[in-house]
Simulated scan of single mutants.
Amino acid sequence: MTKHLTEQSTTSTTKHRATHSAPHPTKHPILVTGGTGKSGRRVVSRLRALGTPVRIAARSAEPPFDWRDRTTWDAALDGVRTVYLVPLDGELLTRPFVERAARLGVERVVLLSGRGVDVPGYSGEANSAGATHVDGESAVRDSGLAWTILRPAWFAQNFSEGFFRDAILAGELRLPAGDGAASFVDAEDIAEVAVAALTEDGHTGQTYELSGPRALTMADAVAEISRASGRAIRYVPLSHREFVTELIGLGWSAAEAEEYAEAVGPIRRGLDAGLSDGVPRALGRPARDFSEYADASAKAWRD
């Protein structure tokens, strides 16, 4: 999903940041859904470094949590006043979960949403995550809880921990992104903003559009990774249909292949190149550049 391309002046950013407080100590655990994912595990690590009690919501946790099994929700929420909420893509479970959380005493929720929630036509019909984010944002705004919404751009970590890593290791990234650019955001920045919103005053009612400080084409991103890792990597642009056909040939279902292609489509259409002010507005510093991410992640492409 994408976002409004808002920019604030340095004066405005400084003023907003000055209203925030130091993290509040709490005896209540902060519940982190998606606590083993790209942003969630970084949120958990940062909260623990602050000495904040944390409860990870996962099927392997104790108590176990399963998005699709509502009988597990109450135990995960027991004694919780604050939640970092990473929704289950493709499902409309955020609203009933938030409603249940409010009834059980939760007071604050920080929702990980996505770009394009407020941009008509951003997500294709095959992209099920779009409906999840639209309904999720509406749910937290309607909840009566203190809320903060994060709308990140494409995670830079998709190249080192996610969708694109195998292709990078193989030396060729093949995508239907054309020569479009994306303002990739470092998951470390997402986590730092999330922790600020979970533990400080001054973030309630804020929707933070999160991006890096510049937009890169896929060819640009691959060049940065090649520089940092010492690997020879090239980007090969494909048409939507070529990409879907290749994935089906690799054993993907047609529906999954279409959804992946449509997720990349906004880059090709120029909808992901905009720069957002959420990181400086929330943290009072610039967002990390992609080159910093590539240097810090080089080991992931050398193994």
Rank of each mutant, 00 (worst) to 15 (best):
G212T: 03
A263K: 14
E107Y: 05
T245K: 12
P64M: 03
D89H: 14
F243W: 07
E224R: 10
E107Q: 06
G90D: 07
A49K: 12
S239G: 06
R68D: 15
M1C: 11
A273H: 02
T72C: 07
K15G: 15
P63L: 06
E7H: 15
W73K: 02
G270A: 03
W154N: 12
A282Y: 02
V83A: 07
S297M: 14
G144L: 03
T19R: 11
R55Y: 06
L50A: 08
D179H: 11
R174A: 10
S39Y: 03
V193L: 08
A282S: 04
V264H: 07
L77K: 00
G114V: 09
A75H: 03
E99Y: 08
E172Q: 12
G79Y: 06
P280V: 03
R17A: 13
L92N: 14
W147P: 04
W67M: 03
D135W: 15
E200S: 13
G202P: 09
L175N: 12
V264L: 11
D272Q: 09
R141E: 14
V222H: 03
A131K: 10
D69N: 13
E161T: 05
E292F: 11
G230S: 04
F65P: 01
L216D: 09
H24T: 10
V110F: 02
K3H: 15
D179C: 09
D220C: 06
K27D: 15
L175R: 09
G136V: 05
W252D: 10
G178A: 02
G124K: 00
Q157K: 05
D142T: 00
I56V: 15
W67F: 07
V119Q: 08
A196G: 14
E209L: 07
A221W: 04
N127V: 10
R281H: 12
G251T: 00
V106Y: 13
L173P: 10
A219T: 01
D303R: 07
E137D: 03
A215Q: 03
T199L: 12
R234Q: 07
D189C: 11
T14E: 15
P23Y: 13
T2H: 13
A282R: 02
V134T: 10
P96V: 00
V140L: 08
G202K: 04
R81T: 12
A181T: 01
D135C: 13
N127E: 11
H4R: 14
A223W: 04
L210H: 03
Q206R: 11
G270F: 02
F159E: 02
I149Q: 07
P280A: 06
G249A: 10
H28K: 03
R268M: 12
S60Q: 02
A219M: 01
L250C: 11
D78V: 09
S113A: 01
R68M: 15
R151N: 10
S143M: 10
T71F: 06
R288A: 04
T36Y: 14
T94N: 05
V119C: 06
I30W: 04
G144C: 04
V110C: 03
D201P: 11
L85V: 00
T72H: 05
W252H: 09
S60V: 01
V244A: 09
D78T: 13
A221K: 01
A156G: 10
F159H: 07
D66M: 08
R17Q: 12
W301Q: 11
G180I: 00
E125S: 12
R214Y: 08
G202N: 06
K38A: 15
A196S: 13
I30K: 05
V109W: 00
